[in-house]
Simulated assay, not measured.
Amino acid sequence: MTRDLALKLRLTQLVTGCVTQKALHARFKQVNPQTGYEPERAYKWVQDRAAPRDPSVFEDLARVLELPVTGETVRTCSFEEFRRLVEARHGPAPAVAPPRLPGGGAVPVPAPPAAALPGYLAGQYLVFSMAWSSLHAGRMIVGGLTLQSRPDGGLLAVYAERLPGGELLLEGPLRRMGRSLGAMLRHAADEMFIFMSFRPPVAPALMLTGVMSGLAYHDADPRPIAGRVHCVRVPEMDRDALVRLTGYRDPSGEAVAGTLRQAGVAAAATGRLAETIVETIAAPAPSGLIDASAEAVHLVSGPLYDAAG
């Protein structure tokens, strides 16, 4: 008998960060390209309206969660037994809503908790992107990003730039959003925001690469705008020291490398890395789109990991 499958799948979504069935299906295909886990049927499974007939689905579920048990154990164990297996491998698991409301409607799967973020993301980064203001068109802006632990186990993102008119400071929680990371950063008093979206980096997170978007506030035309962004981890320093490294620069490899060296980044990693950072943030967007492809991430971050390893 299959037991508590709906609850087990909901917990799996929370632990893996796969908010949708399509995202979870992609994770199943990573462990078994011929998996019997199909999103169309899984919508019924997660609502406790049906169960898989293919026993390999449970084998794949055990592999997705890296559990040291067979698929038959996953299928027949109680939800509490399943939770203990998951927590032994992944740490404390969040609460899971029951699969159905009293009126019969499906309960939506909540977004993954902040605690699902890997701790190795915490630290300080120098942020390189192209300037948004038309007053500094063609120049590069260097920002400072600090990811610090929160009491609930999540991470708070604090972003700072030293601008001609003063310091810009925005903050907000970093969240795991499916297979990506995102942060909506807001100014404490003014109605200002920046949204950052990153590809999750491998440990030890020497670099975050993604897209930053918002409004060009310090401009005669406060238009919506977006651009590629590279965040390079730097040695821990006090906040004022990090902010002093920020501001406008000419978009050159020498400027990037010099700023990284001032921050204490090993010189062996700065040369090739700096040139690639400038090339990618300054490259024109094809078809009006700006993205951070896997190839671009590997191209840029390679020098850092080579120097570290």
Score class of each variant (00 low, 15 high):
Thr2Trp: 08
Asp4Pro: 08
Ala6Arg: 09
Leu7Ile: 01
Arg10Tyr: 12
Arg10Phe: 10
Thr12Trp: 02
Val15Pro: 08
Thr20Glu: 07
Gln21Asn: 13
Gln21Asp: 11
Lys22Gln: 15
His25Thr: 08
Arg27Tyr: 04
Arg27Glu: 03
Arg27Thr: 04
Gln30Pro: 11
Asn32His: 04
Pro33Asp: 07
Pro33Leu: 06
Thr35Lys: 14
Thr35Gly: 10
Tyr37Ala: 13
Glu40Val: 00
Lys44Met: 03
Val46Ile: 14
Ala50Met: 01
Ala50Pro: 00
Ala50Thr: 00
Pro52Lys: 14
Pro52Ile: 11
Ser56Thr: 12
Phe58Val: 04
Glu59Cys: 06
Leu61Lys: 15
Thr70Ile: 11
Thr73Pro: 08
Val74Pro: 07
Val74Arg: 03
Thr76Asn: 05
Cys77Val: 00
Glu80Asn: 02
Arg84Cys: 13
Val86Thr: 03
Glu87Leu: 14
Ala88Glu: 11
Gly91Gln: 05
Ala93Ile: 01
Pro94Asn: 14
Pro98Trp: 09
Pro99Ala: 04
Gly105Tyr: 10
Ala111Gly: 15
Ala111Tyr: 14
Leu117Pro: 11
Pro118Ala: 03
Tyr120Ser: 13
Leu121Ser: 03
Leu121Tyr: 09
Ala122Gln: 11
Gln124His: 11
Val127Arg: 09
Ser129Ala: 06
Met130Cys: 13
Trp132Gly: 04
Ser133Cys: 05
Ala137His: 09
Met140Gln: 07
Met140Lys: 08
Ile141Asn: 07
Gly144Asn: 10
Pro151Trp: 12
Pro151Gly: 10
Gly154Asn: 08
Leu155Thr: 00
Ala157Thr: 01
Ala160Pro: 01
Glu161Asp: 08
Glu167Thr: 10
Leu169His: 05
Gly172Cys: 02
Gly172Phe: 00
Gly172Tyr: 02
Arg179Met: 15
Ser180Gly: 06
Leu181Trp: 06
Gly182Asn: 06
His187Lys: 11
Met196Ala: 05
Phe198Lys: 02
Val202Phe: 03
Val202Ser: 02
Pro204Asp: 01
Pro204Thr: 00
Ala205Met: 06
Leu206Thr: 00
Met212Glu: 15
Ser213Met: 12
Leu215His: 02
Ala216Val: 03
Ala220Met: 09
Arg223Gly: 00
Pro224Gly: 04
Ile225Lys: 13
Ala226Gln: 01
Val232Thr: 04
Arg233Met: 13
Val234Tyr: 12
Glu236Pro: 09
Glu236Ile: 03
Met237Val: 07
Arg239Asp: 09
Ala241Leu: 10
Val243Pro: 11
Val243Asp: 05
Arg244Met: 14
Tyr248Trp: 12
Arg249Val: 09
Arg249Gln: 14
Ser252Glu: 12
Ser252Gln: 06
Gly253Leu: 14
Gly258Glu: 05
Leu260His: 14
Gln262Phe: 01
Gln262Cys: 08
Gln262Leu: 12
Gly264Met: 02
Ala266Glu: 15
Ala268Ile: 09
Thr270Ala: 02
Leu273Cys: 01
Ala274Cys: 08
Thr276Cys: 07
Val278Phe: 07
Val278Leu: 05
Glu279Phe: 00
Glu279Ala: 10
Ile281Ala: 12
Pro284Lys: 10
Pro286Thr: 04
Gly288Ala: 15
Gly288Tyr: 13
Ile290Asp: 03
Asp291Gln: 06
Ala292His: 05
Ala292Gly: 02
Ser293Gln: 12
Ser293His: 15
Ala294Gly: 07
Glu295Cys: 13
Glu295Tyr: 15
Val300Lys: 02
Ser301Arg: 15
Leu304Tyr: 15
Tyr305Ala: 05
Ala307Thr: 05
Ala308Leu: 06
Gly309Ala: 06
Gly309Asn: 11
